[in-house]
Design a binder for these strands. Sequence first.
DNA 1: GAGTGGTCTAGACCACAAT
DNA 2: TTGTGGTCTAGACCACTCG
Lengths: 260, 260
Amino acid sequence: MARTGGTTRAATAAVDSLDFALDRGSPVPLYYQLAQQLEAAIEHGALAPGNLLGNEIDLSTRLGLSRPTVRQAIQSLVDKGLLVRRRGVGTQVVHSQVKRPLELSSLYDDLESAGQGPTTQVVRNEREPASPDVAAALGIAEGSEVIVLERLRLTHGQPVALLCNYLPATLLELDSARLESTGLYRMMRTAGITLHSAHQTIGARSATAEEAARLDEEEGAALLTMQRTAYDDTGRPVEYGTHIYRASRYAFDFQLLVRP
Amino acid sequence: MARTGGTTRAATAAVDSLDFALDRGSPVPLYYQLAQQLEAAIEHGALAPGNLLGNEIDLSTRLGLSRPTVRQAIQSLVDKGLLVRRRGVGTQVVHSQVKRPLELSSLYDDLESAGQGPTTQVVRNEREPASPDVAAALGIAEGSEVIVLERLRLTHGQPVALLCNYLPATLLELDSARLESTGLYRMMRTAGITLHSAHQTIGARSATAEEAARLDEEEGAALLTMQRTAYDDTGRPVEYGTHIYRASRYAFDFQLLVRP
DNA sequence: GAGTGGTCTAGACCACAAT
DNA sequence: TTGTGGTCTAGACCACTCG
């Protein structure tokens, strides 16, 4: 029986039949344009899991790009976990049970993007002298002025989390109204603070009577706790937070990539 | 007053005074050798936080390498969060409160490297037909044979966690004795299984009477829970686990990097 | 042996930041 | 204006996998 396409083998270079639109006039780097279009092709199914990408040389000549440029595009998708390279074999689309490597930022402004219609109530937004542990976490002098932020997160009108954050008072102004609509991290970004890294600790404990009351739980109910210190790209701590979540209504959910 | 070095400015290229030993005969890539030595210099203080690395061109000529090679070395450290590049400014060592971006693998074989002298007892190591949810998680047919593994983790003789894992029975042989000394992931790696990614969910709940008894807690005590599905680089699920941890003795602790 | 990715070179021009 | 990183090119050779 005759076959028409190049699909005789189980996995063939399906890229051959794809069109890529590269705009050399664009300020967007060529490798990035290519990476985006490859990612789109994968997500949208034009490049199916297991498909070989075809060798880099051919691809680069076909696209009118140099090989390093094509490699840079491919590498960025490998880093995202969408592609796998095997020496002597080729590059294939990951046979993805693997959902798209969820933005790690979801661990930052958690529920923000969860699409559950989360709401935030700013319960407290004041300045006060730093307590010893807050000062230690932020690397500032004890008694320095810090912004104290207390927020209640709700989904479907039900409380989910109680977030308490501390920021050096000199960093920015925090308008409560905007905080409720925009989120803390977006406000910091807007203020020119570029986040670089964060250290997090996730634990659990039983709810105290007061916590239970504020979160609409029973005393002794299991709570998830998270403490986080975030740093900007100079290594300066810019935020310290201690959060508690109702374990009955929330869990941390994320993807890990194994670095080779 | 005369100064000898180039240290007049606050942050100067301290790299200039460093010696790098690059071995072109080695099978280790040059960029990797350089990256390792830079990392060592940072960790060991020869390159202090805030220090500029000095421009890439000079560095490459001084080292007898091409610029792309030097860039590749630097880029790998940027990815690790140790360096920051600023266009028009230079590359500097991150002013690190930021501890070394803990191996994410610690989230896999958690306590393994925690240096607390962890012990593992294999409580159960059998084969049985897959239950519906296990079959779903591993993407195999319900009733297929799976390996069921139950382990108890102890530190200082105290139970810390109860780990329950499921693996497709065809994947490998699991020797209980070696499991206790080597760890599950190392055994999988040895069996030629290359881990690629994992999906994790961390939550909390109160201990049942049985769980409490096995973990030496009181009934109702807060427990941390973790469910994980791990995939190899073909996207095939190779392990599913549900773990519980005593919240009074364990917390997840990790570093996040914000991707630019 | 043929084909693949992995590494490396020696240039070039551009965009951005600081002065 | 000067210096930095960001991007890009057109080659080259090597190491590995597979048939």
